[in-house]
Nucleic acid binder design. Structure first.
Length: 155
DNA sequence: GCCAACGTTGGC
DNA sequence: GCCAACGTTGGC
């Protein structure tokens, strides 16, 4: 049984359309600098898991489509590149501190699932992303929530 | 643009 | 180890 996750991205920085335009429709997911999210990347997120691709800080905010994890957690080598925007002087090959995964586009929703649509659904309204002050950029999603989002996207 | 929520930093 | 100050996130 695969796991399910929600990944946040600001579309001005990297949108699902940028993912679609990427080579092989794949991308690395580097730059996560929060320990709770790091732990999920390093320990829990597995190849084959489903990813809800969420567009934050835009209008309207929505789940824009689905991706799939194609490579589980491995060291975020950008943390070890001086001058890189994700450089962290404490990261070393022995202790990389930060981790990343690779994801691949599965599909872009014809109709994005907005926060309003999520909030109006009995199951989807319980999602972490709707909770006030929920700043985690990577969040676990239950199988029921995943199913609810699929239904909303095809309704 | 505002501001509440939250994580991190650093002085003590 | 506490906690105030600070910077960032992200919804509105």
């Amino acid at each position: 049984m695969p796991g399910f996750w929600l990944f946040k991205s600001e579309p001005d920085v990297f949108s699902i359309h940028d993912l679609a335009a990427s080579k092989g429709k794949k991308t690395t997911w580097e730059g996560v600098r929060n320990y709770q999210a790091r732990n999920m990347i390093r320990d829990d997120i597995q190849r084959g898991d489903g990813v809800l691709f969420y567009h934050s800080n835009t209008d309207p905010m929505s789940i824009a489509g689905i991706a799939e994890v194609v490579k589980s957690g491995y060291p975020d080598h950008f943390a070890q590149q001086p001058g890189h925007k994700y450089f962290d002087e404490k990261a070393t090959p022995e202790n990389p501190i930060w981790y990343m995964v690779d994801i691949k586009l599965v599909r872009i929703f014809e109709q994005p699932v907005t926060r309003g649509m999520l909030a109006a659904h009995p199951v989807a309204s319980q999602m972490m992303v709707l909770k006030k002050g929920s700043r985690l950029s990577i969040q676990p999603v239950t199988a029921a929530e995943w199913q609810a989002v699929q239904e909303l996207a095809s309704a």
